[in-house]
Amino acid sequence: MNDLKAFSGHHIDWNLSPEHAVTMYLEWGNNDWHAEYPPVRSKDDVSTYFVVDTWAGWPVVRLVRRNSEHAEELATVALPEQLANSFLNEYGDLKGIFEPTPEIKAWLRKELGHE
């Protein structure tokens, strides 16, 4: 697990969902130039964003840096019990990669000092 304070200087794309990231970086040409996230032009186009990962059971948050060639996991942090339980109440036992809830984003902003 990593301390999020080390990433406080990174520009975080708070509204970038895993679905948008796939559209932008893995399905080139599948999104509109007028969309919030226009198509990627080169491997120099980079996004840094958070996801909630439930594949192992208990939800963790991952900070991901992605370009058109690969995704790099910068940090993995366990959610506090209250946030994890709230997330599990909403999504049940679904396994996957999800966009953080507004409550989780608020916690992440606080952890990064982006309040």
Rank of each mutant, 00 (worst) to 15 (best):
N2K: 13
R66Y: 05
A71L: 03
A6S: 15
K95N: 03
E73F: 09
N30L: 15
K43W: 10
K110E: 14
N15R: 08
I97E: 12
Q82D: 08
A106V: 10
K110A: 10
P102N: 01
S8I: 06
M1W: 11
F98S: 08
E36C: 04
H10K: 15
N85I: 03
K110T: 14
N30M: 14
K105P: 02
S68N: 06
S68P: 05
E90Y: 06
R66Q: 15
P39T: 13
L88F: 03
M1C: 12
R109W: 12
E73W: 09
T48S: 03
P59A: 11
I97Q: 09
E69D: 09
S86L: 01
E103Q: 05
S86T: 03
T76M: 08
K110W: 06
G9E: 15
S17P: 03
A35C: 06
D13T: 05
P102W: 04
V60D: 03
L16P: 11
E72S: 14
N15V: 04
L108W: 10
T48Q: 07
V61I: 09
D53W: 02
V77E: 08
G113L: 09
L16Y: 04
K43I: 07
W14N: 01
A71M: 04
S8L: 01
A21I: 12
D53E: 05
M1Y: 14
E19T: 13
Y91F: 11
A84T: 01
R41S: 13
R62K: 15
V60E: 09
L74A: 00
Y49Q: 02
T48P: 00
A84N: 00
L83D: 02
F98W: 06
T48K: 10
S17R: 07
D32N: 09
T23S: 14
T101S: 10
R65D: 10
S42W: 10
P100E: 02
R66C: 05
W107L: 04
D32T: 02
R41L: 15
V77D: 06
V61Y: 06
D44I: 02
T76G: 03
I12G: 04
V51E: 14
A71E: 15
V51S: 07
P59T: 11
A6D: 13
N85F: 00
E36M: 03
V52D: 07
E90R: 12
H20I: 13
F98I: 04
W33A: 12
D93W: 03
I104N: 04
T101K: 01
N89F: 01
M1I: 12
M1H: 12
V64W: 00
L4T: 07
P38G: 11
V51D: 08
Y91R: 00
L83K: 12
D53S: 06
V52G: 08
L26T: 04
H11I: 07
Y37V: 08
V51T: 13
W14P: 00
E73I: 13
H34K: 05
H20A: 11
L4D: 04
K105M: 07
Y37P: 01
N31A: 01
L79G: 06
L108P: 06
V46T: 08
V77H: 07
V61A: 06
R66D: 00
L88Q: 11
H10Y: 12
F7G: 05
Q82T: 07
N2A: 10
V77Y: 12
